[in-house]
Design a protein around this nucleic acid. Structure first.
Lengths: 332, 332
DNA sequence: TTGCAAAATGATTGCGCAATCATTTATGAT
DNA sequence: ATCATAAATGATTGCGCAATCATTTTGCAA
């Protein structure tokens, strides 16, 4: 037997096809008795809606478009997991676009994803091109920006302040007694630059900021790069006694390089990472990191974009962060 | 102006709509002059095909369905990256399903993804239910199984032998002089069980296999679990002088636990991991691992499923593996 | 040149659904 | 009881494309 259509379900339930359609997609508009009849008929026939037909007729798809910079960065796989959780069981599916940290590419991909109009958009960061913002506003769908925080989102936003997180983390290093703190960063996207700004602020508030305490690169982050950048940092800033790293890949790489070079952590060098991706708590010594609510950001963004109950009442959600102080900054 | 349709392009090019359709999706069936005219008109109007309409009319979507067990396991993010590379620039897009290591869930998801019929399916492993295999055969689309190898794939397959890889790795430990080798495993999916079988074979071929040399769990793998399982292993198998780990999370966790307990690696304990996920080469000491061509598996699967030029001529592709011998097994 | 197969192009139709507008039925105020 | 209004349900139509079949043009052997 061929796949049942709305007409088949309608015949089974003794109503018209369009009524079945309504019973399924806006149940509050039909009577309770009808809704029940339709439900039984749907179950009996094993009816599954045809997304393409629905999309074609309404010019609106059931996809939630998710734009992230990279698939291989664990930060975003955590976020995607949260979104996936939120969408699970709903009638929405996820359409993922990888921008490769490029606003122009983001615009290009988003343009193709906006036809037909999706049911919602989740997009990383605040740095969309003017055209992208324009497109999103014109689309007339819910938009949730994630990973950062701003008083003026395109529509909704859920994230935390990277400036503040980095400032707090740097202050933790200062409070731990470190005097010459360096910054190591890779993949310097806008959020990383904010972390650098927060770092600088904390340093300036407690003394003098010297340019040589910063070692960054635009290469994608990985563990080895942590070692490379530590080399760079210690050669240009020999008195360095602590480093704040852009992310956990780098902090782990720094720790390993210290082990290779016989630098004692935390006595001779304090280390703090960012995002607390799971390995930081396991290394020997364990590494202090900024714990960020990645999965929860994804989950909330998902809930907000589909307007499910349980969604926050405000369009701006700051989920904050915590400093997980561990052995790598525990100077006794 | 509204979005241009095939009719608009046809008017612009002075031909009928259906001819434009043909010029775009099977250019070999139209004359060269026509193809050129259509191309110009498409560019001029900025025509973008409407996927929904195409899918509805043909009952066939332009999606490549990809079924993987988990999103958070880096093994699969690497594979997905490879598939993404292969599909980039083609007219196909990726639709990802997460089975959570459950064949029934896989069957359920795949059933929903098979309507409308996708252009191809990439699916992890060999352990599909009978119903799943049946569905895939009936669908009449290219199917590529990945991550494992078998002489009798559903359609095509690209991967490597987990038995052999584990056997070779275990033999490497034996050849390095270790006498009492243990096995540590988490997330014991079918491929992990094959690795265990390969391990057992190597041990038996060189002496006696004792049950207490195996410590496994079905929990999802993570670094901490490596430590937990090492504890279990050393308590039930105190004479253990080397461990082969199911994957790199565990081997890294084992190394860290050794550092905590003051066990010297590689002298007192040799360690070998699996998949070589990037951190193994960076730890101190660096950890021996089985390097597997994850990204290439994904890329080839993508090329094979869309039948692009450059695809292998045989439906069975064994990409093999290499043992990356590092400090963690270098007993002098 | 003629004839005929093959190649190229066109006309019609329907995929399954939801937007729109039309109609019927229920509700409630007077 | 009457009417106005709202709620519930139905009929028609078109979204943009490709399958199918029909027609025209081309190539080329005899």
């Amino acid at each position: 037997m061929p796949k049942p259509t709305l007409v088949d379900v309608g015949r089974e339930a003794g109503v018209s096809a369009i009524t079945v359609s309504r019973a399924l997609r806006s149940p509050e508009k039909v009577s309770e008795a009808l809704r029940a009849k339709v439900e039984i008929a749907v179950k009996k026939l094993g009816y599954v809606p045809n997304q393409s037909a629905s999309t074609l007729a309404s010019n609106k798809s059931s996809s939630i478009v998710v734009m992230v910079p990279s698939i291989s960065n664990n930060v975003f796989t955590d976020v995607l997991g949260g979104i996936s959780d939120a969408l699970h069981g709903s009638r929405f599916n996820m359409q993922i676009g990888y921008t490769n940290y490029d606003s122009q590419e983001e615009e290009r991909i988003l343009r193709s994803f906006l036809n037909p109009t999706p049911s919602g958009v989740i997009i990383s960061g605040l740095e969309q091109t003017d055209e992208t913002r324009q497109m999103l506003e014109n689309a007339g769908v819910p938009v949730v920006q994630i990973m950062d925080i701003s008083p003026k989102p395109i529509d909704m936003i859920v994230g935390f302040s990277h400036d503040q997180a980095a400032e707090t983390a740097t202050q933790h290093l200062i409070d731990s007694g470190y005097k010459n703190i360096g910054f190591i960063g890779a993949q310097m996207d806008p959020r990383s630059l904010k972390r650098l700004a927060g770092f600088k602020k904390a340093i300036k508030d407690n003394g003098e900021l010297r340019e040589q305490c910063i070692a960054v690169t635009n290469e994608p982050s990985n563990v080895r790069l942590g070692a490379t950048l530590l080399d760079k940092l210690t050669s240009q800033f020999p008195e360095c006694d602590a480093v704040f790293c852009n992310n956990d890949d780098l902090s782990v790489g720094v720790l390993f390089e210290c082990q290779r070079r016989g630098i004692k952590v935390p006595e001779e060098l304090g280390i703090c990472g960012f995002n607390d991706l799971g390995i930081s708590s396991e290394t020997v010594p364990s590494i202090t990191s900024v714990t960020t609510p990645l999965r929860e950001i994804g989950r909330l963004a998902g809930v907000m974009v589909i307007g499910e109950e349980g969604a926050p009442s405000t369009p701006i959600v700051d989920l904050s962060y915590t400093i997980s102080a561990r052995e790598s900054t525990k100077r006794t």
